[in-house]
Design a protein around this nucleic acid. Structure first.
Lengths: 144, 144
DNA sequence: TATTAATTGAGAAAGATTCTTAATTCAGCA
DNA sequence: TGCTGAATTAAGAATCTTTCTCAATTAATA
């Protein structure tokens, strides 16, 4: 997914291509991993110092409505956002907050759950693995 | 796990058995499913109208430190709490917020993730399935 | 019963997200 | 190009959950 595709999609649905939205999209496209709303705002501020958090949240909402955004819930309740890619889950470091995607899905469990709860209309699932990344383990060992 | 066992554990660690804590524990023991902090406070208020949310959160923290509490993260970022039982996951209704536990664990995925990320120290995982329960589906069909 | 450290209530504070409102700006069209 | 109307924005207020602060209270123990 690139900026032009997303912008074309926006246009198609009658949404305005404001510079703020474009910049938020650029930030999300450039991001190496999922970002918090605050991080997105800070990165956007490099080009548009006046963009408010409200605009960031509104744009994220819009992207979510379009199915273009994934929300990642951290074990401590924190939220991060990234542009939607293939369905995937995350390996989350409790030390530095970095999240890395992986493509495995708990399919067996989903089948079992659906079988045992035939009345339940399954719409989705969350799955995340957390712990400490190599870097943070190094720091722990040396620092204390 | 019953109230007396928990209280004995408290005593053992030098914690005070205040009426507030006892009531919070009773509420958690009686609960049919995981509750929000606010719900816990409201139930406690029936017997102790002056118990503050602060006390509820402090007691939940204490229980968590003892490994007696599980925190359940909902897809929308909400949090609910319940006394720890066997390791389990939840089937969460997006309509009414009810959560039902199930015992399946995404073991295959965990093994694959660990194999592919040998530097990562895995400490835990989250897994939840969400959708709409039978009741909420009925309401949707009839109500519109 | 007196002592003491743990605990509490009340409210302030923090942090994330949503809402409000008046002002601005984009997109289509003359 | 320049209007026009609706969408969008910035700024800050409001909300919600959670944590913190602190003086007052209380449970446990001697």
């Amino acid at each position: 997914m690139n900026l032009n595709q997303v912008l074309a999609g926006f246009k198609e649905k009658g949404l305005k291509l404001t510079p703020q939205r474009q910049q938020i999209l650029r930030v999300l496209l450039k991001a190496g991993g999922p970002l918090t709303a605050k991080e997105i705002a800070e990165l956007v501020h490099k080009s548009f110092p006046n963009v408010g958090l409200g605009t960031v949240y509104r744009t994220l909402d819009t992207l979510r409505e379009f199915g273009l955004l994934d929300e990642i819930l951290f074990p401590d309740g924190g939220k991060r956002f990234e542009l939607h890619r293939k369905h995937r889950h995350h390996l989350i470091c409790l030390g530095c907050g970095q999240a890395v995607a992986f493509p495995f899905c708990p399919a067996d469990c989903l089948v079992k759950v659906a079988e045992q709860n035939p009345d339940f209309d399954v719409r989705g699932h969350t799955f995340a693995v957390f712990g400490y990344c190599g870097e943070c383990r190094k720091v722990q060992r040396s620092g204390g």
